[in-house]
Design a protein around this nucleic acid. Structure first.
Length: 283
DNA sequence: TTGTGTTTTATTGCCTCC
DNA sequence: GGAGGCAATAAAACACAA
């Protein structure tokens, strides 16, 4: 029994184009064997037993150039080896080839194709992770928009009440009757709430909020979203910083400090990072 | 049985690294 | 320049529905 060719064909004979029918244009068209369709009746089933594979008689009837699948045992060993290290050093290639009764070239090709399959799967996994991450962010965004709408309507309602109250005080002698400043109508809902509360609680009439463009809420020591009133809001507002203020720009989401990350999200993040670690194969 | 889709084995050409 | 890796691709082998 031949050492290297006992299981399958002799791949060394397959590397050239001599065994293949030419396509006529000199261009290689793939591993077309020199056998006719009548050979199909001699096809070996995919899951042949090891005994069959060592049966010389079985292969004597086969033309050597026929493409064959590896046995489950061979694939198992190759998979184990791939798990240990997905790249193949020359020495390991030779050892594996001897062990499996294959040509080193076949082992190398198997690893090459296996890496390609792994990469495809990895891309699918990465896509799924990114998609779930996006879905989660989109969901958060929706809830923020709804909360914003709710706050806006609350501000409008409070403004109406405030104006009504001022009308009453105007008609009452001895009371201040300052007209509502125009700016209070135009500021963002959050700032609006701050200004209104400043006026109502301290009576100072002043406000430290000057910039209407950004969410620059000055630290007053209090949360503008009392947890009992706004259970959906996590953490004090003074934790919100503008991007300019934030010296700890580590590339993470701006919202990560505002919205608590769920356990699931943390797990997904960790999985993704592990996946990316895997992605960079060691050399 | 047959047509069709998927998986596996293998080749080719290009690129990078030493 | 040779060795090895990867992407693209071909074709055999296989699975499966009609």
């Amino acid at each position: 029994m031949m050492e290297s060719g006992r299981l399958f064909f002799d791949p060394s004979a397959c590397h050239g184009k001599l065994l293949f029918l030419g396509s006529g244009d000199g261009v290689y068209r793939g591993a077309r064997p020199m056998i006719g369709m009548e050979e199909t009746s001699k096809r070996r089933p995919f899951f042949s037993s090891a005994e069959d594979l060592y049966d010389e008689e079985y292969y004597d009837e086969q033309l050597p150039e026929k493409k064959r699948r590896l046995t489950p045992d061979q694939v198992h060993l190759l998979e184990k080896s791939f798990e240990e290290e997905n790249k193949l050093e020359p020495e390991r290639k030779t050892q594996l080839a001897k062990k499996l009764g294959l040509q080193p070239r076949q082992v190398a090709v198997w690893f090459q194709n296996r890496r390609a399959r792994w990469k495809t799967k990895q891309l699918e996994r990465d896509y799924d992770l990114l998609k779930s991450s996006y879905d989660s962010l989109a969901s958060n965004h929706d809830s923020v928009v709804k909360e914003n709408e709710k706050l806006k309507s609350e501000v409008a309602s409070l403004t109406e009440k405030l104006q009504a109250k001022q009308v009453v005080t105007e008609q009452t002698p001895g009371q201040r009757a300052d007209p509502l400043p125009v700016e209070i109508i135009n500021v963002s809902p959050l700032q609006h709430r701050v200004k209104a509360e400043d006026r109502l609680s301290t009576g100072s009439g002043g406000s430290e909020v000057e910039d209407e463009d950004g969410p620059q809420l000055v630290d007053s020591g209090d949360s503008y979203f009392p947890s009992d009133e706004y259970p959906g809001c996590v953490g004090p507002v003074d934790g919100v910083q503008s991007e300019e203020d934030d010296g700890s720009d580590d590339g993470r989401s701006y919202f990560s400090d505002v919205f608590a990350v769920t356990g699931q999200q943390q797990q997904q993040q960790q999985q993704h990072e592990e996946a990316l670690d895997w992605w960079v194969w060691p050399n």
